[in-house]
Design a protein around this nucleic acid. Structure first.
Lengths: 154, 154
DNA sequence: TATTGTTATACTCTATAACTATA
DNA sequence: TATAGTTATAGAGTATAACAATA
């Protein structure tokens, strides 16, 4: 390590990456998550688990692998998450009668209560984290993100 | 684990999260990164290291902490990344003469060569990963993402 | 006292391959 | 043979706090 000859730079450029959706997606996502976690206090309301529980509640009987694929979670990792939620009594794992390989998921009463209790907190945090955009901009952004993710438009 | 009474659900809803920028950002980002990595073969061209090297090349003398903040990398983790790049002879760490606490970074000749050699590959992969959007949609999305990230508009 | 960067460590997240059971 | 899920494990990524040097 030697002595620098030039001044530090405070305004940075990222060249071609400034026009890269992939790069900007990553930065924007990290920014929003930092804010969301700051509001939620990560340890009290794990946003990932909340998402899974909410989805199971909205889609009772959903197959585990379908949910994993949609949330971009590997099956091998999904197993651990689901077992943990089951162990805490928040969900039930049920063998599908049509295909006995498949596991279908539903909330227990305790799971429903948990989702309900944390709903307001999560939604408030999620909304605040994008307060820099107005209503129209949020709608536009949501639509473009769905397209990128290969999700159906609403 | 018992027997399920209902059929599996293949079309999922995510309720209020479907209209959440934060949630969609995460899914979209994971989707794009999967595609990008598939093209790059992650082990050959680590996109994170490429970004750091590109930024140092475009902003010679940049201070380590400034770069870390901008890329949402913690200082303690940035140290390891920078030391690794230095150890491979791709960058130099220089003490800033104005503030002897600060480290300013620049590419070595080998570093410049590395960036140049991988430039085309990275940019091609990054572009292909958002091929589902047309030119205008990409511009709009980039602008909105910059706003979310708190970055200046170009 | 505050800032810049480092060290050490623990924890979470993610990826991979081999495996069982069912279709 | 292919699919649904599990297990084990390694590796990457991330967070936290205590610390030294300089401002």
């Amino acid at each position: 390590m030697s002595i620098a000859e030039e001044a530090d730079v405070e305004t940075l450029s990222f060249g071609p990456l400034e026009n890269s959706v992939g790069f900007l997606l990553r930065i924007a996502q990290l920014t929003v998550y930092e804010r969301t976690f700051a509001e939620l206090d990560r340890r009290d309301v794990p946003i990932g688990e909340y998402t899974i529980l909410l989805a199971i509640g909205l889609n009772p009987g959903v197959r585990q692998g379908v949910l994993a694929d949609r949330l971009r979670i590997k099956w091998s990792n999904m197993t651990k998450l689901i077992r943990s939620l089951e162990g805490r009594g928040l969900i039930e794992r049920l063998v599908s009668p049509r295909d006995r390989r498949a596991i279908s998921l539903r909330l227990t009463a305790a799971g429903e209560t948990w989702v309900e209790e944390h709903k307001a907190l999560v939604l408030r945090a999620v909304e605040r984290s994008v307060a820099s955009l107005d209503e129209d901009e949020q709608k536009t952004l949501q639509s473009l993100l769905r397209k990128v993710a290969g999700w159906p438009q609403l």
